[in-house]
């Protein structure tokens, strides 16, 4: 049976954020998880995540963050490793459905009432409330869970998103109109990695390659439905498109070089 997360409405979330806004991770940690807050649950389906479940989850996330510098140290490489490993941990441990994971109130509750100290460590404060209020693109933990859901093939061993960088992941995830089908999103990751393996000269400009490929795919989608073709056709199309992007990026590099 899938899990239903406790939920918090916007007024309660804002009240919590007002309360903790100026505090650091260690001070907030002393109040985590927040109790005596009117949590609700979805009216139907699943097993409600009770106190112990949420405590266990918090313990695991804090342990992971602690290995990577929480609460006092923030290095870019460690933060990237946290995002990658925490995405997998959340996806494995939560046991929620995409339907449940589509509710802002569930993520707002998880982030503000159970893991706010970790989020504050991750972003060095709460300057952007969308990082902690369940926002569809920016909430600290919502975005990580969805990365694992969309980009990781559960039939394969976990490989930390194949070494994709933050910008490369964002380039895929923030285009749900293009990549809302996991088959397509995972094909992009596979083909992108294969392209870099085949042409290591592209490694220094890999972000340009991803951006160019996503632009090409975005241009095609009004006239092309990848959802109704098979995995092999998806792979062939993404492969051709990635090759075009690689050629374009390589030409651009040559042109830039000739100006140096």
């Amino acid at each position: 049976m899938s899990v239903l997360l406790p939920r918090l409405g916007r007024p309660e979330v804002d009240a919590l954020l007002d309360r903790f806004a100026e505090l650091g991770p260690e001070e907030i940690a002393a109040s985590m998880p927040v109790e005596a807050t009117p949590f609700t649950y979805a009216p139907v389906g699943g097993a409600r995540a009770r106190t112990q479940f949420m405590l266990d989850l918090r313990r695991e996330v804090v342990a992971l963050a602690s290995e990577l510098g929480y609460p006092g140290s923030r290095e870019q490489r460690s933060l990237h490793a946290f995002d990658s490993d925490c995405a997998y941990l959340l996806h494995q441990q939560l046991g929620i459905t995409p339907h449940e994971a589509g509710h802002r109130e569930a993520w707002a509750c998880l982030t503000t009432a159970h893991l706010l100290d970790v989020a504050v460590w991750r972003w060095d404060g709460i300057t952007d409330r969308n990082r902690v209020n369940g926002d569809v693109n920016r909430d600290t933990f919502r975005r990580l869970w969805w990365r694992a859901e969309m980009l990781h093939d559960p039939a394969q061993q976990w490989d930390g998103f194949g070494g994709l960088g933050e910008d490369e992941i964002v380039a895929i995830m923030e285009r749900p109109g293009v990549t809302g089908n996991p088959e397509v999103a995972r094909a992009i990751v596979r083909v992108f990695r294969a392209q870099l393996d085949d042409a290591p000269a592209l490694l220094p400009v890999r972000m340009h390659l991803m951006r160019d490929a996503m632009k090409r795919l975005t241009r095609l989608t009004p006239f092309l439905s990848l959802d109704v073709v098979g995995p092999s056709e998806i792979h062939v199309l993404i492969e051709a498109l990635m090759q075009d992007a690689a050629d374009a990026v390589a030409r651009e590099q040559v042109a830039l070089g000739s100006h140096d």
Partner: peptide, 17 residues
């Protein structure tokens, strides 16, 4: 030619055939 149908949910932002 083929006729097909695709669904898309704004709650999950997922699509499927």
């Amino acid at each position: 030619l083929a006729l097909a149908v695709v669904w898309k949910s704004d709650r999950t932002r997922l699509r499927g055939p």
